[in-house]
């Protein structure tokens, strides 16, 4: 039943992205009084000034880290569908930790936020891995359910007990300024996260293709039975890959807090977990491919937000783009030689 994710090809990625753009153009045509200005906003505006460009790169960084989490899980043959929750709950946990200990020297404060966020994400992901390893519960279902159960709890904390009533936003209090990640490229919110993301892509690439661990992970993902007979321990990889995947999602959440929002806000993840799956698949589950596809996605996302001013329903446009890409990215447009 479990079919392979590496099916399809680079061509599938390209066609999926082109189809998504085509759908976007059509929808913008429907929903916008001035089609041409919406088009210009969608395609050109993200590149026109420092603010848009920087924000685009900033969101590219976050997308990339979450996508690396997906690359690791999917390469290991595990479906982590709990990204949304891992990002959100991780971000909230990191924020709460940062708020609880406000007086640390800056760098330690930032590290505290990031570590708590990653650990929370890793715990959530690892739990699904554990259920799978112990009892064979499909991680595909449990990771989603766990995430869906916890998001309302996180929302409850943000609007309720952890809410900062002095702010008009539905959000927690802000982290102390010393914990914020340094920004470069003002006035955009591009910050150190971007560099971290690129570095992580390089690290995941090395790990995946040049270490024994990465080799074992890939073999495990392609043929669990063979991996077991080669002395690769299943527990390490079911728990490890799901934990690492969740951890990278949690880290994404933590970096979004420390770099951009400086607090946990209602509706925090906003679909980035789903986008990450699309990014990873468009990048053919390759860490370096993910860099390119994260950039592409961030561009599409920025375009969507920019064209929002020109149409009535653009907020959902992002979701539709994700959907179209996911529908087609694993498709085989060429008849495979392989029958099984």
């Amino acid at each position: 039943m479990r079919d392979r994710l590496t099916q399809g090809s680079f061509r599938s990625s390209l066609l999926a992205v082109l189809a998504a753009i085509a759908v976007t153009v059509i929808l913008l045509g429907f929903g916008s009084p001035s089609w041409s200005s919406a088009m210009r906003a969608f395609f050109v505006q993200p590149l026109t000034n420092r603010f848009y460009l920087g924000n685009m790169l900033s969101s590219m960084g976050y997308l990339l880290i979450a996508a690396l989490g997906i690359v690791i899980a999917f390469r290991c043959g595990l479906y982590n569908l709990g990204g949304e929750g891992q990002i959100f709950v991780g971000a909230l946990a990191g924020t709460l930790a940062g708020l609880a200990l406000p007086g640390l020297p800056g760098i330690f404060g930032t590290l505290l936020v990031l570590i708590v966020a990653s650990a929370t994400g890793a715990l959530l992901g690892g739990l699904s891995g554990l259920f799978r390893r112990l009892w064979g519960a499909p991680e595909l279902i449990t990771s989603y359910l766990l995430s869906a159960a916890l998001i309302p709890a996180a929302e409850y904390l943000i609007v309720g007990p952890a809410n900062d009533p002095t702010r008009s936003l539905l959000a927690t209090a802000r982290l102390s300024r010393a914990y914020w990640l340094p920004r470069f490229f003002a006035p955009s919110d591009l910050n150190l996260s971007f560099a971290i993301a690129i570095a992580l892509a390089g690290i995941v690439y090395l790990m995946m293709f040049y270490t024994v661990r990465g080799y074992e992970l890939r073999i495990f993902g392609l043929n669990e039975e063979f991996a077991t007979y080669s002395g690769i321990h299943p527990t390490t990889y079911t728990l490890g890959a799901m934990g690492l995947s969740g951890g990278l999602h949690g880290l994404t959440g933590g970096l979004m807090v420390a770099g951009t929002y400086h607090a946990a806000i209602s509706g925090f993840s906003g679909g980035i977990g789903w986008s990450a799956i699309a990014v990873a698949l468009v990048g053919r589950l390759h860490p370096l491919g993910a860099i390119v596809s994260a950039l592409l996605f961030a561009y599409l996302d920025a375009g969507t937000k920019a064209s929002m001013l020109h149409t009535e329903f653009t907020f959902e446009l992002g979701t539709v783009i994700q959907a179209v890409i996911l529908l087609l990215v694993t498709a085989s447009f060429v008849v495979s030689r392989r029958s099984s």
């Binding site: 392979r4 590496t6 890939r218 073999i219 392609l222 043929n223 039975e225 063979f226 991996a227 007979y229």
Partner: peptide
């Protein structure tokens, strides 16, 4: 093919 090799590698 199942236990002895990873055919996609």
């Amino acid at each position: 093919l199942l236990r002895g090799a990873s055919v996609d590698s």
